[in-house]
Simulated scan of single mutants.
Amino acid sequence: MLVHLRGPAKTISFAGCTVQLSSFLTVGGVECLLLAVMAYDRYAAVCRPLHYAVLLRPGLCCRLVAAAWGSGLLNAGVTSPLTMVLPRCGRRRVPHFLCEMPALIKMACADARAVEMLAFAFAVLIVLLPLALILVSYGHIAAAVRRIRSAAGRWKAFNTCSSHLAVVSLFYGSIIYMYMQPGNSSSQDRGKFATLFYNLGAPVLNPLIYALRNQEVRAALRKVSGRPR
């Protein structure tokens, strides 16, 4: 996508479009599940700190990560081939910055309602279900923070969850904005730029958001900027 945005040629092969779509669906599905896993990690750290090592055993963590990658690969393995085999009746222009599934479905010159329904079902399982788990986790965290009497304890809990909350807001905010747009052209254009932010802006900001929680990183930034500790 970056190559096509930078260079004069704006074409992509069928195989390249398939790889792009599959990669997009895979990493999107993986991130949804990983954010839910991280919300459970924050729940254990804030609400069950004495049982954290039991609740987040290394074996369980490995299985959760494997389940996240499995869901992403399953999402791409099912929806990507069904989207790409839809008839397009000759050379067509993709009305987007990349080969995104809704844009490719709209290009089909045949009835694509079955593919749309399948995509919606996968979206509920891979996007909305993890979001529901995140909201449940933070509901328990909010209730636990309300019971903390000391300001230092509340600040510690906020510091534990702040980076994850920021990433969840960026990720789900852009996804909801992308897929909840009305059908007029101006809203669809704004959705395209939201997709561009989701693919470029969020991955650039995520490492910075998580790294700034690290005391050594903050100390290095203060040293570079010349500020005292």
Rank of each mutant, 00 (worst) to 15 (best):
V168N: 08
G173A: 06
S174T: 15
A166L: 14
G173I: 04
L170I: 09
N184E: 14
S186F: 10
Q188I: 07
G191Y: 00
A166W: 11
N184G: 03
G173M: 05
M178G: 01
A194C: 07
G191D: 02
S185W: 12
T195V: 04
Y179A: 06
L196P: 00
S186Q: 10
N184Y: 13
G191C: 02
S186Y: 09
A194Q: 01
K192I: 04
S186P: 00
R190Q: 06
I176G: 06
Q181S: 15
P182T: 07
Q181A: 15
R190V: 05
T195L: 15
Y177W: 13
S186K: 06
P182D: 08
S174N: 10
Y177T: 12
M180Y: 13
A194T: 01
S169A: 15
L165E: 09
N184Q: 11
I175A: 11
F171C: 04
M178N: 03
L196H: 00
M180V: 09
S186G: 02
P182K: 04
K192H: 08
S186N: 05
G191R: 00
M178L: 13
N184P: 03
K192Y: 03
Y172P: 02
S169G: 14
M180F: 15
Q188Y: 03
Q181V: 13
L170K: 02
D189E: 14
Q181L: 12
I176W: 12
S185P: 01
S187V: 01
Q188H: 06
S169Q: 10
F193H: 07
S185M: 12
V167R: 08
